[in-house]
Nucleic acid binder design. Structure first.
Length: 220
DNA sequence: AGCCAGGACTGAG
DNA sequence: CTCAGTCATGGC
């Protein structure tokens, strides 16, 4: 599994994805681009990005796209705004906890938080697991943490690489790639693009009968 | 009609 | 410690 070769092949096939580059969007009142990336990572948990965009748009219109805004907004109003992203009871609580943490420990600056927070610090927050923590560190903080998701596992599976634990996948990629946040960023986004295309193909063609199952080689 | 999205937490055994 | 159950809306 030559990761750089796979990476170049994905770039050729799908082009640059440009996920959350945190463009130099102006940071007006109630609008913090880095914070937007952070809550996007939470809102998209087991949820299509399309639905997340609606929720973020609601927050934007209410000027709640920064840590203080989310920390202070009424609970029920927050739930209504993020409703399209699903799991609104759980996710509103998750957003509150993250926002309050940033307000308390980083003076409400999501950028400062994204640059200085440790992985363990994020994982200690209720509602943030390994994938969300890595997404925040990589896409909001530009830190070299490789993100593993369901599509990444499927890609590995296709090459006969299979682990049980999230961190085994993470180590597999990080040990075989240069420690480069920009590369991690694009690679993960490309893997998602690959996974989504592959799923569409499965649904449209080959009415999910007789799918060839490859034997999974378990690696140590 | 179901199944599933760029997961994570909880409770039972 | 493992693992099914739960959470919720929108798209297909």
């Amino acid at each position: 599994m030559h990761l750089m070769r796979i990476y170049r092949q994905l770039v050729k096939q799908f082009g640059e994805q440009r996920w959350w580059p945190v463009r130099a969007t102006k940071r007006a009142k109630g609008r913090d681009p880095v914070f937007e990336v952070m809550i996007g990572a939470i809102l998209t948990q087991n949820t299509s990005w399309k639905n997340v965009e609606r929720a973020i748009e609601h927050l934007h219109r209410a000027r709640c796209l920064d840590a203080r805004g989310v920390a202070l907004v009424d609970d029920e109003q927050l739930k209504r705004m993020i409703r399209p992203a699903g799991y609104f009871n759980q996710k509103s609580r998750k957003l509150k906890i993250l926002a309050e943490h940033i307000v308390t420990n980083y003076q409400g600056s999501a950028r400062a938080a994204a640059e200085r927070m440790t992985r363990a610090e994020l994982l200690a927050l209720w509602g943030i697991g390994p994938e969300t923590a890595d997404s925040i560190l990589l896409y909001a903080g530009n830190r070299p943490e490789f993100v593993i998701d369901a599509y990444t596992r499927r890609l590995c599976e296709r090459y006969g690489v299979c682990f049980d634990d999230y961190h085994d996948y993470k180590a597999y990629f990080e040990q075989r790639l240069p420690q480069d946040a920009a590369l991690y960023n694009e690679f993960h986004a490309l893997i998602v693009a690959w996974g989504q295309l592959r799923k569409n193909k499965e649904n449209t063609s080959a009415r999910k009968g007789a799918r060839s199952k490859m034997q999974q080689v378990r690696q140590k």
